[in-house]
Design a protein around this nucleic acid. Sequence first.
DNA 1: CTTGACTCGGATAACTCTTGTCCGAATAGA
DNA 2: TCTATTCGGACAAGAGTTATCCGAGTCAAG
Lengths: 157, 157
Amino acid sequence: MKMSGGVEWALHCCVALSEAGAPVTAAKLAELHDVSQSYLAKQLQLLSRAGLVRSTLGQSGGYVLTRAANEITVLDVVEAIDGVQPAFRCTEVRQRGPMAVPPERCDTPCPIARAMDSADRAWRESLRAVTIADLIADVNRTTPPEILAGAREWLGA
Amino acid sequence: MKMSGGVEWALHCCVALSEAGAPVTAAKLAELHDVSQSYLAKQLQLLSRAGLVRSTLGQSGGYVLTRAANEITVLDVVEAIDGVQPAFRCTEVRQRGPMAVPPERCDTPCPIARAMDSADRAWRESLRAVTIADLIADVNRTTPPEILAGAREWLGA
DNA sequence: CTTGACTCGGATAACTCTTGTCCGAATAGA
DNA sequence: TCTATTCGGACAAGAGTTATCCGAGTCAAG
Ligand code: SF4
Ligand code: SF4
C-alpha cells in the first residue's frame, strides 16, 4: 500500500505553476524543489498526458496549467500520476479450488470486493473535495510572506 | 497505489476459519482456495503476529481466530497484512531547495499532507465499519446453500 | 529566411519492494 | 520415548518503481 512518490512533487509543481502565471521549465521546478530533474520530467509528462498541464516547446517554453486552480482537484493529480485503477484487485478466488462457485452463480459482487470498493470510493471522494486553489490559500496563510514573495520572484527570473 | 495481493487471501481465510470452528491447517486453506501454500503461510504468519489468529502446533493443529467474528474488522486484516503506515509519505520538500522554509517555521502541517491524511482516515474508517461477521452474513445470503454446506464439511474432513 | 539554441517526449538501465519458496525448530499425540 | 505433523523465520526470483539519457520538434532571435 504505497502511493507513487512522484505525487508529492507533482502537487508541489501544480501549486508553483498556479502562482507563476508564465510558463516554467522543468529544470527550474526541479531546482526549486531540489529533486532529480530527469525524474520530475517524467511526472510532468504524465500530467501533460492527463491534460492537466500544457507544454510549450522551444525557447521561453515550459509548463502552464490548462485550467484554473479551483478547477483542478487533488484527485486529478493523484490519478494522473498514480493511475486510476483501485488499490484492491480481486482475483476471483471463489471460482477456484475444490469448492469453486460456478461463474454463472457469481452475478452478485462478493461482499469483500464491495467493502474494498466502497472504501476506495470514500478515499477518492475525500481527495476530490480539495482543489489546488484550496492548497494555495492554505499555503499563503501559513508560510512566511517573505519566503512566498521570494519564491514568486525566483520563478519569474 | 497497489495493495498487497495477500489481503484477499487473508480475508477469505478469516471467513473460512470463522465457519470452521475447529483448527484448520494452512495446507487445507491453500488447497481450498487453490493458492500457493508456502505463500499463504506467510500471510497467516502476519495474521498471527497481529494477534488475530492463534496457531496450534503439532498433530491436529492449525489456526483459530482469537476473537469473535463480529469483533474483527476488515481494517484489522488489511493493516495486519499490508502494514499500518499510510500510503502517502511526505519527504518535507518545502525544507529543501533555494526557497527552503526553515524547520522552525514548519510547525503547522502542510495542507497537502493534511488532505492526504484526511483521505487515508476516511478510507480506514470505511474499512473499519465492516466486520468479518458482516462478510459471513452476506456470503451466506448470496452463495448457493449446497456449496456452503459442502465447504463446511470439506473443512472438517 | 537562416541560424541557433532550447524545450519536451519517449525509450533505456539501476534499484527497491513485493512475491514466492524452502527447510529447520517446536509441539501434541501415540 | 518416539514419530509424524505443525508453524516460524530465513532465503531467492520477479515485478514495479525510481532514476537517467539522448533524440525529435519548436520557438525566438539575428
Ligand atoms: S469472493 Fe470476493 S474477494 Fe474473493 S475472489 Fe471473489 S470477488 Fe474477489
Ligand atoms: S509541503 Fe507538505 S507535502 Fe510538501 S514536503 Fe512539506 S509536508 Fe510534505
